[in-house]
Simulated assay, not measured.
Amino acid sequence: MSEEYPAQEPQGPPLDATELTLQQLVLESQDIRVFLTELAVLASSRLSSAGNTIHSGVTVLRNKRPQAVAASDAAARALDELQNGFGQGPCLTALHQRTTLLVPDLAAETRWSPYVRTAAQHGVSSILAVPLDLAGDAEAVLNLYSGRSNGFSGEDIVAVETFAAQAASSLRLIIRISQLSEARNDLTAAMQSRTVIDMAVGAIMAQNRCDRDTAFSILTRASSTRNVKLREVAATVITSISGEDRITAHFDE
């Protein structure tokens, strides 16, 4: 039978080396997917031992649907996608219940029968799933697979929970950095569009000797008639006058 462990603060000593490694990942990762992939690889390498290779994956809940977004290797990704395809399993249960969940021996497990049976056919004998506490920013779970029964010791569980807590803290940071970057890019794109439209309105005013409202009306009517975005029509107007194929605006950082 599987064993559930209530969420609790890690009791093991601080893993200074792991924490420094995670901080380095935050600094080096280009995006969240890259960070999670490095996280899965790190978890796998830290837990694997002679005769007990650990495969690690990360599943994220998006729009209420689980997605396998990162893995230490192809085997881990296949196992995550397999579980997501069935829509049930220990990792998804741990994700929804936000509780660490250990299945020490799949041969003795009675829940999630279709998935467990198929996972066993893929060489999995034990599974450990630890949710990542992202404080409402998202929902994710670290999935660990072993080809051995009782492939995870009590010490392994404490170590993974400590690692997951440190990883979640780093992941919250990188999510917020990503959100700020996306917001900045959206603002820059909006300013770019606004500048191009204003330039086109000015050109139409000069050509037709009309006021701003009339010029803007001419531009929007052309956009509606051609079923083309307003910014694209504005860029076409500027190109026809200046001959420039690429219209850019520059902003001080």
Rank of each mutant, 00 (worst) to 15 (best):
R226S: 12
L47E: 00
T248V: 11
D133L: 10
V228M: 12
R231H: 00
H55P: 00
L219S: 05
S49M: 05
Y5G: 03
P131M: 11
T100V: 09
A222T: 10
L142P: 06
Q23L: 14
S56V: 02
Q166N: 14
S181Y: 08
S125E: 07
S44K: 02
N63S: 12
F251T: 08
N208Y: 13
S224M: 14
H250W: 13
S56L: 00
H55I: 01
S44R: 07
F86C: 02
I54A: 01
D133H: 13
T214P: 08
A7D: 02
A234E: 06
L22C: 01
S125P: 06
A78I: 05
R194S: 15
V41G: 03
L142H: 04
T18N: 12
A183H: 11
R33C: 05
R65A: 11
V233P: 11
I32C: 13
R221M: 08
V141L: 07
A168L: 10
P6L: 01
V60L: 08
G243D: 07
T21Y: 12
L187W: 12
A200M: 02
Q179F: 08
L180M: 14
L171M: 14
R148D: 01
R111G: 06
S224F: 13
R172I: 01
S170E: 05
S29C: 00
F35G: 01
G57S: 04
Q192V: 02
G136S: 03
A119G: 00
